[in-house]
Amino acid sequence: MIDVVLNIVLLLFLLTMAVSILFIRHLMAMAMLFGLYSLLTAALFLVLDAPDVAFTEAAVGTGISTVLMLATLAITGIHKEKRPKIHLPALLLCTLVGGLLVVISLDLPPLGDEQSPALQGVAKHYLEKGKEETGVPNVVTAVLASYRGFDTLGEVAVIFTGGVCVLMLLGHWRQKPSVKVKNKIRITSR
C-alpha cells in the first residue's frame, strides 16, 4: 500500500514540476527545476521496481542532461524567456490527443495487473529461462546484453552519432576567411 501512496505523491510532485517548468520564465531556475524533475522521475522508477532504469535516469537524466543544459545557458548567457502567449491551437491539439490517450488507457490493463499480456509474453521466458541461458541473475542485464544485445549495439551507435554531431557543431574549428573558401573551389575545379 505504501508503494501506491508513494507513487501517487511522487506523480503529483512530478506534475507540479512539469507545470512550473512550462511557466517559469527564468531559464536558470528552469534548469534547476529540470534537474529536480529528473531526480523525481528516477525515484519513481525505483518505486516501480526498476532500479537499473532509476540509476540510469539519475546519472544520465539528472546528471548529464542538467549539466548540458546549464552549460548551454552559460554559453548563451540568456537567462530570461520572453513573455509567452497562449497558443490556442496547441491547447486544442493537446486536449484532443490527451482525450484519445485517456480513452485508450481505459482499455489498458490496470497498473500491476497479473493478466496483462505483456507479462505473459516474451518477458515470462526471460524470467524463467534467463539465468539458465545467460548465467546472469539480473534479468535486465541479461536481456540488455544478450537477448537484445543488438539494441545495445545500436545504442552505442546512437551515442557515437550524437558525439560526432556535437563535435561537428561545437568543435574548435579554425575559422576561415571566406577568401580561402574560394581558393578551395578553384582547386576542385582543376
Binding site: 505483456a118 526471460y126 535486465v140 536481456v143 545504442e155
Partner: peptide
C-alpha cells in the same frame, strides 16, 4: 517486475 520495458527504457533514455 517485467524486465523487458526496463531494458527498452534504458536504451530510450540514452
Amino acid at each position: 517486475a517485467n524486465p523487458l520495458p526496463q531494458v527498452l527504457m534504458l536504451t530510450a533514455i540514452v
